[in-house]
Design a protein around this nucleic acid. Structure first.
Lengths: 201, 201
DNA sequence: CCAATTTCTTATCTTTTGTTAACGTTTTGA
DNA sequence: TCAAAACGTTAACAAAAGATAAGAAATTGG
């Protein structure tokens, strides 16, 4: 995967948010970097401000917190999704969570500083405001769905939802990560799976 | 509470997001409405697109879903907070939840249509893009905190957090609403409260 | 002011979930 | 390739939470 190819993919995907002409893209592109992580390396970690918003070209990450020595996985992201400890990025407060590569992962990233520069009025400001708005809205919709599921559904239902909509998530991710993502323990998820196997639906 | 007073309060509060000069305010103001709800009336409901973003001048609301005939309260908002079924507002898909006034409540609102009009390039567009970005970011930070608490904390800890940071929430809201907000049943919350009373800290 | 409703607590019983540990399988990395 | 580590399942027990019901207290709405 060479850099130009990665940037092309990025440009194509953000066209859902903002369409840049060649002049704008030239400026924007200079604010983008390629970042690669090996498996288990961190994109973000607690105590450090997350200064970047990434976009996964290839690979995947998990978001997790450490509580009483245990890792609790809260979320995953895959190809063509944005990745950031976004509250930290926005507020410049230290992050509370790790973001860790689950496999060798290639990102296109821009920094908080670049965001500020591009928001300063010359060429791109207007479109970057929109870009920032749409990224925030994208995250917000994810969170709203997830929060609603937690309030109104049982762990078993959330697992079944994941089964039906979950693309290849369940194949690519260790099951005990999925368990925490669902808000339960790995043992409990194993029980739910057996129950479903025995009496499917 | 007369309308001019309410609009003044609104203008003051949104200055955290965008500062409008008098000309801009004049235009913006024409897109604002005052909406009042009696106790138990709905700001939004399932099946209908939520076409407004409100801001509470006086009063409070709860967000809730209905599941198997039971109302499950997921969130609250009070004075000086935005109110909307925001994903519905953004996507123009029907909302999944009710938003109900907990007491007689006064809102300043703008509509989806106004948002679109103000985003169309003449005077305000740039500032409205920013406004939209900052509202989305505001919501996103709320959601991120809440989601993290759900993944990493027990119901008892979430209740203690609410006790320490909860302003007057606990005084103003029936306890069984709080219970669902914490992700547990009212009976269970009652038990947690007793446990804390018996052995505080 | 008072009856009706809502709210909170408590008790009992049931179900679900967590904890710990054991065991077999799979994956990993040197 | 092979030993170590990670992973998933299962069992047994403990702890937490849900369901239901009853009763007291508080609030509400005529």
């Amino acid at each position: 995967m060479d850099h130009l190819k990665a940037l092309d993919i990025y440009r194509t995907h953000i066209e859902k948010y903002i369409v840049l002409n060649d002049e704008e893209w030239t400026v924007f592109k200079d604010h983008l970097s390629i970042r690669t992580l090996k498996k288990k390396q961190n994109f973000a970690e607690p105590g450090l401000v997350c200064n970047e918003v990434g976009f996964i070209i290839l690979g995947s990450v998990r978001y997790y917190n450490v509580r009483e020595g245990e890792e609790i996985t809260g979320y995953f992201s895959f190809e063509n999704e944005f990745v950031s400890s976004y509250k930290s990025f926005l507020t410049r407060q230290p992050a509370l969570n790790y973001i860790q590569a689950l496999e060798p992962t290639i990102f296109v990233t821009f920094s908080q500083k670049s965001m500020q520069l591009m928001l300063a009025p010359p060429l791109l400001a207007y479109k970057i405001e929109r870009f920032g708005r749409l990224i925030a809205e994208y995250y917000l919709c994810c969170y709203e769905d997830r929060m609603t599921a937690f309030i109104t559904k049982t762990p078993e239902e959330r697992y079944l939802d994941l089964l039906s909509t979950g693309r290849d998530v369940l194949q690519r991710i260790p099951q005990h990560y999925i368990a925490h993502f669902l808000g339960i323990t790995p043992v409990s998820l194993s029980r739910i799976r057996r129950k479903i196997l025995v009496s499917p639906l």
